[in-house]
């Protein structure tokens, strides 16, 4: 909004400056009226805005370069972290059994890549399935809770109770029910990522303006009409904000379950590798998890930007 006004100022400024002497243009420029005070005011405004135009233009090009610079800096930060790590390992002569050098880890990644690949895919598959199920459950529960004050009050303590159980404690139960393997991992990641979605969807629905609800109720809208036309779109930004948290949590759930009871997946590889004191392999697993986590985070935030781009400006309208 701010940028829009500055651009407008910049556009109108030269026109005002060139024809400030003619009385008709001063009248048009200032809505207060053709008094002498207003005329001088409209002469001074271009004087202020003309120099302001250049910084505005410069700002735009500066902004681009700033973004580029920021990207470069974060790339440098990552590289220098690895460099520092490598250097520290050499300087302090740290054993590869405790903290392997990054170069050694990358070597393992390259060497055992084909072997690790199916495990990575297993973890990814489990995470995404658990995430999808968890989000689905979260949206449904959140909709039920968020659209009725009564359901909210009744179910909230229950939900808080469920969410405060440490998820490690749930894995053995799932293993007893479904046996070791993929199912407990999917269920763990589902359970762990449901709660933030529930809370956010319920909050989003509860934030529907009462005036707007009144406008629709007077029209004879049913509860479902209001939910569909107003509540759900209003809750979308909240939902997407929670998806970014949920996807990272889903990873936690999967790896947790894989380390406890599985015969496949990165978590399983890491637990076996650490049993064999193959520390570089453990770290390699960690790197793979980090890479996949970043990837999914980026995907969900890109989707968020596309779907709920209106939200950032929408809030501004609500405030102004």
């Amino acid at each position: 909004m701010n940028t829009a006004t500055t651009i407008d100022d910049a556009l109108t400024a030269p026109a005002g400056a060139s024809s400030a002497a003619s009385p008709t243009s001063t009248g048009a420029a200032s809505s207060t009226g053709p008094s002498p005070a207003a005329a001088t005011a409209s002469v001074t405004t271009p004087r202020i805005t003309t120099p302001a135009m250049k910084p505005a233009a410069r700002k735009r090009s500066f902004k681009l370069s700033r973004k580029l610079r920021q990207r470069m800096l974060s790339a440098i930060a990552i590289v220098s972290m690895f460099a520092l790590w490598e250097l520290a390992c050499i300087v302090f002569n740290i054993s590869g059994l405790i903290l392997p050098r990054p170069s050694a880890i990358f070597a393992v990644l390259l060497e055992k890549g084909p072997l690790l690949w199916p495990h990575a895919m297993q973890t990814l598959y489990t995470t995404i399935t658990g995430f999808a199920l968890g989000v689905l459950a979260g949206v449904v529960i959140g909709m039920i809770i968020g659209s009725s004050r009564f359901a909210y009050d009744v179910a909230y303590p229950l939900l808080v109770g469920f969410s405060s159980i440490p998820k490690v404690a749930v894995v053995p139960i799932f293993v007893v029910w479904f046996g070791a393997g993929t199912v407990p991992a999917i269920l763990t990641s589902m359970v762990i990522c449901t709660f933030p979605v529930v809370v956010n969807v319920a909050t989003g629905l509860a934030h529907t303006e009462p005036e707007l609800q009144d406008v629709l109720k007077v029209l004879g809208a049913r509860k479902l009409d209001i939910l569909w036309n107003v509540g759900l779109p209003r809750a979308l930004p909240y939902l997407f904000a929670s998806l970014k948290i949920a996807i990272t949590l889903a990873f936690v759930g999967t790896v947790l379950s894989e380390t406890v009871a599985a015969n496949k997946g990165i978590g399983n590889v890491m637990i076996i590798a650490s049993g064999n004191f193959d520390v570089p392999l453990v770290f390699a697993g960690l790197f793979i998890l980090a890479a996949m986590g970043i990837m999914l985070y980026v995907i969900s935030s890109l989707v968020e930007q596309r779907v709920t781009g209106w939200a950032a400006r929408g809030n501004e309208v609500a405030m102004g």
């Binding site: 707007l212 406008v215 007077v218 036309n229 939200a311 929408g314 309208v317």
Partner: peptide, 22 residues
Amino acid sequence: IGLAFQNPTMLPWLTVRENVMM
């Protein structure tokens, strides 16, 4: 019945026309 308040309560994800057509 039609109803209007002090607060215009337009839905930000719709165009003005879509809001009017609500």
